[in-house]
Amino acid sequence: MTLFLLRRLLQGAIVVVVMSLVVFIGVYAIGNPVDILINPDATPEIKQQAIERLGLDRPFLEQYGTFVVRALQGDLGRSFIYDEPALKLILQAMPATLELAIASMVLALVFGIPLGMAAGYWPDSWGANVIMTGSILGFSLPTFWVGLMLIVLFSVELGWLPSGGRGETVVVFGVPLSFLTWNGLTHLFLPALNLALFKISLVIRLTRAGMRETLQQDYIKYARSKGLSRHRVVFVHAFRNILIPIVTVLGLEIGSVIAFAVVTETVFSWPGMGKLIIDSINVLDRPVVVAYLMLTVVMFVVINLLVDLTYSLVDPRVRLGGRPR
């Protein structure tokens, strides 16, 4: 187990280093922030001053070196725009994104698993056809368009739910959260649903496939031969086995939920990291972009590690680092 963790941490570190290079080169290539930041009418002297102050006159490798040294000390640079530490800006926006991501994952499980199980248990029913057709729509309709349509329907036409923002928040341990107030919940619901739609479809298909496959297994027939109720056969014997692929895929999808949040946050003007990064890219605020990407890399590495650990909890055959008996 310890060995497994060490190995994974080392792999993670390598990924982070490689990504930092890629990110840095990428950001370096997308344009000169000075052109946007400084009034075009400014004199060349002022321009030169700004360039020097931001360290943009240094050679690429030196800039990268400085970045790495500072990053190791926890300093990912200061925003050109807000003149605040980039990390602080991102961390301020992070709870909103995480709340949105978690809410949509919860929706994905709450809707996806029961619907998928039903569609897998009665594969030839008309209900299953409706569910599967719905999941195809969920897969194929673009997120931003669905977001706009949700706003048109629920905010503009029906006027039931607000179209943007976080609403009232409650501060818990210094973190503002929307889902604890009714007003916040109404603000959270549409963007979370928008973000969840794709995941719901994914979970439905995974669960349905798992259900159909599992029900064919000998151990299900054996469980029935012991006189167990249908309820127990489906929800204990089949469900535990279906859960294995779902946990794996969903764990990996947490990362993509956060990434997709960029679109949803923009549509619903949800003040999260996604909106921050889009704004920062527009004004070439390099440190924020770099810090965001680095943070995302670290997050992916950590999430993958956690998924592997969870996996071993759900499936007893996977005992990490241990030799099979």
Partner: peptide, 10 residues
């Protein structure tokens, strides 16, 4: 087949 009849996760 005893390999297939006991539920692997229980």
């Amino acid at each position: 087949d005893p390999m297939m009849t006991l539920n692997p996760v229980l």
